[in-house]
Design a binder for these strands. Structure first.
Lengths: 341, 341
DNA sequence: TTGAAAGCGATACCAC
DNA sequence: GTGGTATCGCTTTCAA
């Protein structure tokens, strides 16, 4: 690989001059600049990033920690949305983004704080964090800027970015009730997920305010478990006229259960999902859902990280707007089992 | 941030000793090593990555170029599969991976070759390349190791990694024909995608070998366009008993068209997709599909890149095995319009 | 407008 | 076992 010395020699100037050209200094003769630029391009020279970083020590990278990355299982579309949002925003600021897993960071016996310092990162964006990781407390106590997606963690220079799950769940519940539904079941996702209690809370609050009895159907985020759980529930509670599911995958299972049990959606049962992944509109009936803005979540995570890094205080939590999409799978309640009225 | 000097001072040793401890040298007294390690951890010191890189110049990073990243539109689940595979493999080799877009690389007037050299990357993994990019020819002519996913490009240290689209399409076509289908339509994706002609070729070859008339329905990879195109075709060609779609999204549209037109799937029409994204099993009927191994594609891309980098010659193209998943949406042809027999 | 030279932080060879 | 120091490639101040 060519170095600045090679370019300087070829151009018959000093390395200082070459350096100045690449760093936008204006006190260089146009002729000299052109010559240097031309020669550099010709030999595919560009300043060694490590050497530059070493001397002018400005951090210009951020690290995204994706716990579940590197495993066969992780193939969820929303991750692409988040990453895409992060990149889009990073591009605007000229920041480079490194995606890593805990395992990769922790190798060689180092911890997150050391890793950040060693690489001069502005901070971390963390998603899907495994809270049992013993190194996390140390990170949280440090002053390393961190943005957590979909989980709240308190600490200095620590901010959470998420959808307002409680509000969204409450709103969807209200909409279902507004369509005349009284027996609205909520199919909850995994208990160990941070978003689960939030969504349950919103649902329960809304039901309470409406004077309705909440009914939680505890499932997880997988299709097969959801299918079985929902089927069992419907058989036991035929009075159910609406199912609000904590994810679109769960909602797909609900749709399948209804079809297999001979219930028409939305005529007999209304079904709503959460996330609004792209396949929801491929389903028949098309799924109503709480649309999370994953791209926005990623973009917000990055811009929040920048502001923490710049010593601003954006507050402990930042909500990214959601949108409720009503499609074919939800309709007015037409069944007459509204004994609670 | 603390430097090696701070640690050396605190431990009352020289910087050389500290350096040796962090580089696994064995000629250090256990006692000294422990002391240094302890002090370092205590002040969250870890060798500055840029300084280390500068002196021992071993490249240990690879760059993934994702053209369509950073845009709202890209939210396809398969990207996560590919990235996940790349990361999984990178972790094994202790390589760091940088994900970037052309735009981010090309800023400051540099090109791909310069970017690679400046960052001491082992090479690039490129997906979704925009071939009209004027800088690409220069990269291809260079000796920079590159692995292209789903596109073939010839050049020194240039290898393609892909699913054998032609073979897979031919195989699926053969399976459909084996079930008695004679009028098998192929719904093709965007013409400007590299995989499209490959899949068309496989389909046509199989049809030809079976003595059947190929019938290409030209669409793109979007749902709405596919819906309209397929609907039009079915109305014009009611003899069609099977639709082989170039993607699962297209196949979802086909399923919807059939439902809306009153055709039962698979009784009246069989439908097959391509990709096997996770939502295919949420559909009713569950979609038969050519399952691409996206994780494997990513992992293979990285290991191939390593071998090119090491001056091995893995050949111009590497195929990652696919799998054909037969589910509910495909069945034996029961219609009697087999006039071509 | 250009260049000499002092570092940036870490590594590794060579003495001791 | 430990330490002195040249060196990696580049940036930037200061002089010329």
């Amino acid at each position: 690989m060519k170095t600045i010395v090679d370019v300087a020699n070829a151009a018959n100037v000093s390395v200082a001059t070459v350096s100045k050209v690449f760093n936008g200094y204006q006190d260089i003769a146009d002729e000299t600049r052109e010559k240097i630029l031309h020669i550099a391009k010709d030999m595919d020279y560009f300043p060694n990033h490590f050497a530059s970083q070493l001397v002018n020590g400005k951090e210009e990278g951020i690290c995204v920690i994706l716990s579940m990355f590197g495993y066969q299982v992780s193939k969820d579309e929303y991750l692409v949305g988040i990453l895409s949002g992060i990149h889009s925003e990073a591009e605007k600021h000229g920041l480079r983004v490194i995606i890593s897993t805990e395992k990769a960071i922790l190798r060689d016996g180092k911890n997150y704080v050391q890793f950040c310092g060693s690489n001069k990162f502005m901070g971390f964006i963390i998603h899907g964090l495994n809270m049992s990781d013993p190194e996390i407390p140390h990170l949280v106590e440090s002053e390393v800027p961190c943005v957590f997606i979909d989980i709240t963690i308190e600490g200095k220079k620590k901010v959470s970015v998420t959808t307002d799950n409680e509000k969204a769940a409450a709103e969807m519940t209200g909409l279902l009730a507004g369509l005349g539904h009284r027996h609205i079941g909520f199919v909850a996702g995994s208990v160990d997920s941070w978003v689960t209690p939030e969504r349950v809370k919103g649902y329960c609050r809304a039901m309470g305010e409406l004077g309705l009895n909440p009914c939680i159907i505890q499932s997880d985020f997988t299709y097969p478990v959801s299918y079985d759980t929902i089927q069992e529930h419907i058989l036991k509670h035929p009075e159910t006229t609406a199912l609000f599911c904590a994810s679109d995958v769960i909602a797909s299972a609900a749709l399948a259960v209804c079809a297999d049990l001979g219930y028409a959606v939305p005529k007999d049962i209304s079904v709503a999902g959460y996330d609004d992944l792209s396949f929801t509109s491929y389903l028949r009936p098309q799924l109503s859902s709480v649309a999370q803005n994953f791209f926005g979540l990623g973009a917000a995570a990055l811009s929040t990280l920048i502001s923490i890094y710049q010593e601003q205080d954006p507050g402990p939590i930042h909500y990214v707007p959601y949108e409720i999409k009503m499609r074919q799978s939800v309709a007015k309640n037409t069944r007459q089992n509204q004994e609670s009225l």
